[in-house]
Design a protein around this nucleic acid. Sequence first.
DNA 1: TTTACTGCAAACATTTTGCAGATGT
DNA 2: ACATCTGCAAAATGTTTGCAGTAAA
Lengths: 159, 159
Amino acid sequence: MVSTVLGSGAMDNPPIVTVLDRAGYRLTEPRRSLAALIAGREGHFTATELVTEARARRLGVGRATVFRTLDMLAELGAVERLDLPSGEHAYVVCEPAHHHHVVCSRCGRSDEIDDTGLRKVVREVARRTGYRVDEHRLELFGLCPACLAGQPGPTRGVA
Amino acid sequence: MVSTVLGSGAMDNPPIVTVLDRAGYRLTEPRRSLAALIAGREGHFTATELVTEARARRLGVGRATVFRTLDMLAELGAVERLDLPSGEHAYVVCEPAHHHHVVCSRCGRSDEIDDTGLRKVVREVARRTGYRVDEHRLELFGLCPACLAGQPGPTRGVA
DNA sequence: TTTACTGCAAACATTTTGCAGATGT
DNA sequence: ACATCTGCAAAATGTTTGCAGTAAA
């Protein structure tokens, strides 16, 4: 009913560079750099984090490019924009096509969930309210198995 | 399975002033003003909109107070913070207790939906992923019946 | 060669904070 | 009386834009 993709997000997805290429965008140096940075991330990340890291590594990637690229990737579905409970905007890598995520409030890890069960809920809401539902967003927050087990690891303050 | 509360949001909820009072907050003039502004709203509204309207009506309510009050109300559950698809933060009045909303992308109207069906989905995700899910958020966007019917009415640009 | 793309810096928008003074209880 | 609450103005954040130059195709 609800199937899940386990594993740390970015692991087995089509390389971001490929997604860009296939969409007809130029494979520029800044974009390659960003793709690498993003691929290297576990869990969620913010635009600002990328800006900071790019600057730290002297990759010569400007703020504007980060925002522009993230926009593109979100558009293409290679990345999804999350609204953390804290109000921050974060992104996670994901299979282009869909979806929704469970996000760990402690380490930031995220896993995709498919919306098989959700679809029914959405359909039902539409029926009951008379709305035509065009878009829906589901975000789950909690603790991932590792953090539940008390594993140390990086704490990414997700409120 | 999924029950719905129809009607334009703010209609039949405990007065905001009461919520504040019961929570032990002082019933100050600025808070009363804001409560009135919010009660007068249909559909969603942003902090900035309130600031602007308060200023237009010369209510002498400052920016900071608007943000502080909205925070309080969100905390108390009298209001819920929405993340519109555009990335904007908006608020809707709601029954303190729970909730998710369907939001009309055209007029901003919103209706509550209960999560009877959703609960099952959440539980299933938890089971499959091993996460302990502490918090979840569901937001649906589309067109309300009135807007579907081509009714004119105020268009609140929700992306 | 062409035109998409870039960094930069400035513009904008949103939210938070410090603080002296006002105000509810 | 006195702690809570306020507006203000400044600061911290977050995001977008205009533009002249750069580089991918």
